[in-house]
C-alpha cells in the first residue's frame, strides 16, 4: 500500500498538474494551445534547470540558498564582459558562465565539506555576499538591451525545431540528469550519502566530497542559467531573480524531494517546477493578481512537506516475527 503510494508520488503530482491545466482550459481554452504551452515551458525552463541542481544538493542533506544570487552575479559578469568585448562568441560565454557558477558552488561546497559549517548558514551568507558583489562590480548600474550584442541576446531565443534554445537547454539538462542521477556512480552516491551517511562510509563513499560535488553542480547550473536569464530578458541588474531561490526550493519540496535527504527523482523536481510555472502563468489568464504567487508557493511548500512527512514510514526495529510477515 505505502509502497505503491510512494511509487506514485510523481503520478499524484502529474495528476494534480493535469487537473489544474484542465480546470484552466475549461474556462480559458487559449491556455492549452500548443504554442501557449510551449511558452509556459520556456518560461519555466530556468526554474527547471535550477531545481535539478538544487535536487542533488538536497539529496545529500544540504541546501543551496545562494543559487539566485549566483545566477544574478554570473549574469552580471557575462553581461559586462559582453559590453566590454562584444565580439566574444557565445560558446565562450557559456563556458565562462558554467565555470564561474561552478566556482561559486565550490566555495559553498568547500565551506560545508572542509569546515563543516551548516549548509543553511553557508548559503545564507554567500547569498548576500554574491548579491553584494554584483553591486560592487556594477556600481548599482543597470545593463540594458542596447548595451548587449545581438548574438548575446539572441542565443536563448533562437528557435530550433519549433522551440527556443532555452527550452532545449532545459530539456538537455533534464536528460543529462536522468543519466547522471540514475546511471553514474556519483549520481547514486548523492542518494547514498543522503539516505544513510553512516552506511556510505562503509561502502567507501566520501560524504563531504559528494556534498561538495553537489554544490559545484548546482552552482554550474546557476551560472549557466545566469547567462540565459540575462540574455533572454536583455537586462542585468543587482536584483534580478531576487527570492528565486525560494521558488527553486519550493519546486523541489513540491516534487517530493525529501529535505532529510536521500529521496527524490528527476521527474519529481521537473514536475514540481512545472507546477509552479503553470500556476505562475495561469494567474494572469484566470484574472488573479500575480501578487498571489508568493503565497501560493509558500502554501505549496507547507502542504508538500507535510504530505511527505505523514506518508513516510515510522522507523523502529521490528522484533516480532509475526509483525514482520504481516508488514
Amino acid at each position: 500500500m505505502i509502497r505503491s503510494l510512494m511509487k506514485s508520488r510523481e503520478t499524484i503530482l502529474a495528476g494534480a498538474i493535469l487537473l489544474l491545466v484542465i480546470g484552466i482550459a475549461i474556462r480559458f481554452p487559449g491556455f492549452v494551445t500548443p504554442s501557449n504551452l510551449a511558452n509556459v515551458f520556456n518560461d519555466t525552463a530556468p526554474l527547471i534547470i535550477l531545481a535539478l541542481g538544487q535536487m542533488v544538493v538536497i539529496l545529500t542533506r544540504c541546501i543551496d540558498l545562494s543559487v539566485a544570487a549566483n545566477l544574478a552575479l554570473t549574469g552580471m559578469v557575462v553581461a559586462m564582459l559582453n559590453m566590454a568585448m562584444p565580439g566574444l562568441p557565445v560558446p565562450v560565454i557559456l563556458v565562462l558562465a558554467l565555470v564561474l557558477g561552478a566556482l561559486m558552488g565550490l566555495v559553498n561546497g568547500l565551506l560545508v565539506w572542509k569546515l563543516d559549517i551548516p549548509p543553511i548558514v553557508v548559503t545564507l551568507g554567500t547569498m548576500t555576499i554574491y548579491r553584494g558583489i554584483i553591486f560592487v562590480i556594477s556600481g548599482g548600474e543597470w545593463i540594458n538591451a542596447h548595451e548587449m550584442s545581438d548574438a548575446f541576446k539572441a542565443f536563448p531565443r533562437e528557435v530550433v525545431l519549433g522551440l527556443p534554445v532555452l527550452s532545449w537547454i532545459a530539456i538537455a539538462v533534464v536528460l543529462g540528469f536522468i543519466i547522471l542521477v540514475g546511471r553514474t556512480p556519483l549520481g547514486r552516491a548523492f542518494f547514498a550519502v543522503g539516505g544513510n551517511p553512516h552506511a556510505a562510509v562503509y561502502t567507501g563513499i566520501n560524504v563531504g566530497l559528494t556534498q561538495c560535488a553537489a554544490y559545484v553542480l548546482s552552482g554550474a547550473l546557476a551560472g549557466l542559467t545566469g547567462y540565459l536569464w540575462v540574455a533572454r530578458y536583455a537586462v542585468a541588474y543587482v536584483d534580478i531573480a531576487g527570492g528565486f531561490e525560494l521558488e527553486v526550493v519550493a519546486a523541489c519540496v513540491i516534487g517530493g524531494i525529501s529535505i532529510a535527504g536521500g529521496i527524490g527523482s528527476v521527474g519529481g523536481a521537473l514536475l514540481g517546477a512545472l507546477f509552479l510555472g503553470i500556476v505562475k502563468n495561469a494567474l494572469p489568464v484566470i484574472n488573479i493578481s500575480p501578487f498571489w504567487q508568493l503565497a501560493i508557493s509558500g502554501s505549496a511548500i507547507i502542504i508538500a512537506v507535510t504530505f511527505n512527512a505523514t506518508s513516510s514510514r515510522a522507523k523502529g526495529r521490528v522484533i516480532l516475527k509475526k509483525a514482520e510477515h504481516a508488514a
Binding site: 519550493a250 498571489w292 508568493l294 509558500g298 502554501s299 511548500i301 507547507i302 512537506v305
Partner: peptide
Amino acid sequence: VVTIGTMSLFRG
C-alpha cells in the same frame, strides 16, 4: 523548510 514555506506564505 517549514519556515521557508511560511516565509513565503506570510509575506505572500
